[in-house]
Amino acid sequence: VMYTLTSLSPAESAFDMDRSSGALVVARQLDRETRPEHRLEVRALDTSTSSNPQSSAVLVRVDITDVNDNAPRWERDPVVIAVPEDAAVGAAVGNFSATDADAGPNGELRYFLDSVEPENGRSKFAVDRLTGSLTLLEGVDFESVARYTLVVSVKDQAVNE
């Protein structure tokens, strides 16, 4: 029996096949984010006889599973948010939003407020871990402090974040 491989997906095949053993081998770098599945046709052909060769084919779907190869990305950096000094305590005054191309926990994001400058502003702001929403916890006063600098980080939920 001899084996042949045909890619049914439009792009060039990322796989090769050993014609004699039928081993399916990775021939190009895979990337789930670009192409999560590959459809192939493997055909087995008997070669012992030249008079009436027979063949049959099987469809193979190769699912590419995710690894955490993308870090979260911020849409903007820095983010500038204007908060009126009469903003109500408890009001959502901004939203932090990052994206991650990976799947499942590898792309699931959590937001953290790392630091606030000046430091006495630490008690004034809270960032929701899940949504990235920025909430005012205490009143602000333009005449006392006109600008706060917040460092917000985002992490994916992979084991190797």
Partner: peptide, 16 residues
């Protein structure tokens, strides 16, 4: 159906 991680190196044998 065959599953393969996206970080395998070229030459990796996916299946037989």
């Amino acid at each position: 159906m065959v599953k393969v991680r996206e970080d395998v190196s070229i030459g990796f044998v996916v299946g037989n």
